[in-house]
Design a binder for these strands. Structure first.
Lengths: 261, 261
DNA sequence: CGCTTTATTGAGTCGTTTCAATCAGAGTGG
DNA sequence: CCACTCTGATTGAAACGACTCAATAAAGCG
């Protein structure tokens, strides 16, 4: 989670408003799928797949989203090569996706925040093509894809929503390609910070003050640079008064200046 | 077109086997949409959206794909900002997609070969987000998206095909991100050549001997390097005996060595 | 055929990487 | 409770790869 609060437990409680993860369930049977996702009362309803659906359609979507699942920090929601069955809506926490090149190189291809959808890569070959690793203890709604497809044949608005979601992922990646191909390290880091900022804002968090849950290595890998360059760039931004950095804690001081990079 | 033949007209005729573009139509009313796409007799049937569909489903798809359209070299199939209505299946020719950054920079985000689908980026916002420019005289099937969506609600196999197509585009772009972020200029050019080679082979062309219809600038932009670096890298490959270059004409001499880059 | 665009090649510069050392923080166990 | 270790972050200096600028050559086009 990229929230502004200091302690992880506070973060969890914040999400618990929308996603009822009571501490007991969390501490007991751990990572087994659990029933009872409730779209209608979920605070992320207007951000995730359920957005733009009316009451009855949300209910029908909910009938497909039967389970949710915990993923502990560092654990995989799925791994490259796993057979594809479901897509996942992130409820709380944060997840990175990692591509493993045959040569051994690893490459972070995305960071996901609550309300965002993971696993779309698996549809084409029916096998997942990357690892999805939790950056902190996280919870996801499990959406069996064949059920979603069946429902999409009946509910037009849901079908459209799913298509838009997939298209949005395509657009997001095109933008990232552009960033990697044409921008300097400084520009990439600035774009990255602003991107996170905007996504947090949409979720009701402070757009200027947040903690990056991923390591410098993850950031570097995602932005196509070494961890040293990522670190140096953040330091330089701090020297220039654009941001304040304290390890993973970030404060954006001059959004416009960042935008001009 | 990336075909192996020398003259453009030979290329056109080759495609004319599958897509009945007679020269008369081509020379007369030019770029207006034309009726009469015929999926059932199209040679690209097993490569494009119609793959994995049985006879009756292809016929139903065909009822939606009512028109096809010529796009002359250098002209736009659509432009960034155009309202989104249709996706396009490339029948013959080749097309690049270009992203225009507000700052004025342009960036090639993709090259498309016959049988591939363009325009998926427009679904999410109902506005196209890039320009699609023909690299040579090209022909596309026009697929009104709302009709396709309606049909997908009725034909499960088509729905699945469309989902797989979109997912494949996501996977393709993830791979490109990895390439841009983690590989050297040499590795990128090698990967690019091998990628083109594989796609041509699937379409029945020689995988080792083809013409690149795009400029060095396009290649460089697509691969996140300057046109000079792209040119130099091709020259170096030639010196090392991996390929033969003669302007846009390419011959791959040592596929394995390219793969090891 | 001349004009314009595209491609090639060279030399110097600059940004990023590499290698290496140091520092900070979290978790562990004596 | 404090040393200890391990991982992650920061910073410096040298090396290298890609870019920029520039000049020339080749190819496409009217």
């Amino acid at each position: 989670m990229f929230g502004t609060s200091d302690s992880p437990s506070a973060d969890l409680e914040q999400h618990a408003i929308s996603a009822p993860l009571d501490r007991q369930a969390r501490l007991s049977t751990a990572d087994a799928p659990k029933p009872g996702a409730q779209c209608s009362t979920c605070m992320l309803r207007h951000i995730c797949m359920a957005s733009n659906l009316d009451e009855t359609d949300v209910a029908r979507l909910n009938s497909v989203v039967r389970n949710w699942k915990m993923v502990r920090q560092g654990q995989a929601l799925y791994r490259s090569g796993d057979p594809f069955q479901s897509i996942y809506a992130l409820r709380s926490g944060s997840i990175k996706t990692v591509l493993s090149h045959p040569s051994g190189r690893e490459c972070v291809s995305g960071f996901f925040l609550p309300g965002e959808t993971l696993g779309l890569d698996g549809i084409s070959t029916e096998v997942h093509t990357c690892d999805a690793i939790a950056l902190e203890d996280s919870a996801v709604c499990v959406i069996p894809f064949h059920l979603l497809e069946a429902l999409c044949r009946e509910v037009k608005s849901l079908q459209q929503q799913v298509h838009k979601m997939m298209s949005a992922e395509i657009v997001r990646e095109t933008g990232q390609m552009m960033l990697l191909g044409n921008l300097t390290a400084e520009q990439r880091v600035a774009a990255f910070l602003l991107n996170i900022s905007r996504r947090l804002q949409r979720r009701g968090y402070s757009p200027t003050c947040f903690t990056l849950r991923m390591t410098r290595e993850d950031i570097g890998s995602y932005l196509g640079m070494t961890l040293e360059t990522a670190s140096r760039t953040l330091s330089r931004f701090q020297q220039e008064g654009l941001i304040r950095v304290q390890g993973k804690q970030i404060e954006l001081l001059d959004l416009e200046a960042l935008d001009l990079r």
